[in-house]
Nucleic acid binder design. Structure first.
Lengths: 345, 345
DNA sequence: TGCAATCCCGGTAACGTTACCGGTAACGCT
DNA sequence: AGCGTTACCGGTAACGTTACCGGGATTGCA
């Protein structure tokens, strides 16, 4: 009653061999129906639970997935929920590790999980990470890796991402259509792919609307509210200040909003603002901030599905790159002209 | 080069026994300095990583902690970060599972992790859970369990929690001191301990300020924004409507705020509002909402420390209950009288 | 020189499980 | 009677690791 029961215990009590017990429990054909019943009954009675460790050791797979994320903010937590959903269904358990946007922490976490704890990884890279040796090490061990949200071009692995370029395009196009003439962008660190893609969309939209990109209006700053606040202050202090700002994240949009309010400028009249992620907060502030929504939950699910597929088919899916479409939600912060059809939520 | 190296490989290449290799790798005294060096060198060269599975199987512990949370909102994600911090330091890896506030999901997750995947649990229970058999099963296996945030009185296990009564008291006292006379409370489901404690603090404060509790002003509703919105609408439709509302969470405070604004009432003049959790959002909305802050990160760290202690000392800490103090942050939504000393942030 | 202590090492069992091989009995068929 | 087939079961090795026991060789001391 103290130690958990094993197949040995069952075998001993039933006076049969452990091999037979093992077979009986696994529904292999070569076992008498009576003995099987007896085994099953006793297993139930002893509340036998197969030892996952022994199993994993034997067949060299753990049925665990290592998920590494830079943090657990709204968007990523939602994605993780999506991953969890699919993984559980497929018989996998996920191990979530936060790198806290720290390169060192990311390496430690990876090493940890690599120690025969997981069968593979689903990864969203930290913004600090510029070298990917620790991820390549995973692939050397022939472990499947799926990237999500923030992809790594250098890494030969499948990935799921948002069409960030389209998102940047939608946001900027909307601002242009609303009559804004000097549209600034608050982007993230230069090594961050998602940031660069969104900026590319921004540039494309400018081109389409025949606006000349102005380097002074394209700011790179850290991915948080505080830096966006400062950057916005500087933008607004220019002699030819921008009349609209597109920020690469909602956190940054909030920072920008605070700076704008402090300066006494009104949205959307004096200045337009569009964020990215569509976190719940943006519809609660005044004025409500327009934002590009990403299907985070679905993105997580897709990543997990891709992982499962890679494991099952054991095929090379390294060239697969699923792209999901974002959708702009227009709110007061950028709406100067009455919309053709109603939206927001 | 394909399969990961084992101590067998090292032993074979060095023409010594696996026992010696094992000893050398583990710094046990009984091994020649030369052989040790050789072993270490070869281990390095083959990039040998000890197989955690085999180790766990052998010594019957995994050095994993199962963390079960109802969701990953701001507060819980912060707590998990705290747990992670301490656990990593102590050589443990955490497995986070979300129950999505679902009883069934909680059971599934627990069973999963129970299958010899973890050494014990750090748990915050789902709001749906009313029966705790699945947690008692853990204890039957002699596994350590630490509860955090939402405790279970029925369970003989150590826990870390907020002084929710004090939090409720602080919030209500503040409203009373601001001159509000009819203070309502939006509480959570009746089976949720943290909600009841906060309400008790509310009642204590009322008593202290000689205000009679009015059942019509004490609403139980589900833990989210939508229900709080509806409940607030009903409150405001009363003939003798409340002039202040204390909500048990910030989500609910947001819901209440929307209903208040819609009704055309002003905060803090017409009605006062205080939330709970001090999520970033409350300082961003207009007016900024007063809220009771909880030291979520510290609370998580403390929970993990308690866990580690339980494992190491192997002593019965089931009666330990650490209580952390909350702190009210006063903002515009409830500030009618100039404060004696500056605060907010 | 003899004996014990010390240093270092190897063999084996065990953790719980499954894969593989082999074996026994019963049966049916020619 | 002899043979092959089927149905069922047991023994053993193996996954990678450590704990334990039992050595042999070398050293120290009397």
């Amino acid at each position: 009653m103290d130690k958990p029961a094993t197949i040995k215990d069952i075998a001993r009590q039933l006076n049969i061999s452990i091999s037979t017990v093992s077979r009986a429990l696994r529904n292999t054909p070569d076992v008498n129906i009576e003995t099987r019943k007896a085994v099953m009954a006793l297993a139930e009675e002893l509340s036998y639970q197969p030892n996952k460790l022994a199993l994993s050791l034997k067949q060299k797979q753990t049925h665990n997935i290592g998920v590494i994320v830079p943090n657990l903010d709204y968007v990523l937590a939602t994605m993780v929920r999506g991953i969890d959903e699919v993984a559980l269904e497929a018989g996998y358990t996920v191990m979530v590790c936060q790198s806290n946007e720290s390169f060192g922490r990311e390496i430690v976490n990876t090493r940890r999980l690599l120690d025969s704890l997981v069968d593979g990884f689903i990864i969203s890279v930290s913004s600090e990470t510029k070298v990917f040796d620790h991820f390549k090490k995973i692939q050397e061990k022939k472990m499947p890796v799926v990237m999500f949200d923030r992809l790594i071009p250098d890494l030969q692995a499948p990935g799921v991402r948002l069409d960030n370029m389209d998102g940047g395009y939608q946001a900027t196009e909307h601002l242009a259509e609303q009559g804004y003439k000097r549209i600034a962008i608050l982007a993230g660190p230069k090594n961050l792919g998602i940031s660069n893609m969104r900026m590319e969309g921004y540039l494309n939209a400018l081109k389409k609307y025949r606006m000349k990109p102005d380097p002074d209006l394209m700011i790179h700053c850290d991915f948080n509210q505080q830096y966006a606040y400062i950057a916005t202050q500087e933008l607004l202090a220019m002699k030819k200040r921008p009349d609209a700002i597109f920020t690469i994240s909602d956190r940054m949009a909030i920072g920008a909003m605070l700076a704008i309010k402090e300066k006494g400028l009104r949205m959307p009249q004096d200045i337009g603002l569009v964020g990215f992620n569509n976190e719940p907060v943006v519809s609660l502030v005044t004025p409500a901030i327009s934002s590009v929504d990403q299907p985070a939950f679905d993105l997580g699910k897709l990543a997990a599905k891709l992982f499962i597929e890679t494991v099952h088919n054991n095929s090379d899916m390294s060239m697969v790159e699923e792209v999901l479409r974002p959708k702009l939600y227009v709110r007061e912060s950028s709406l100067r002209i009455a919309p053709k059809n109603g939206r927001s939520r």
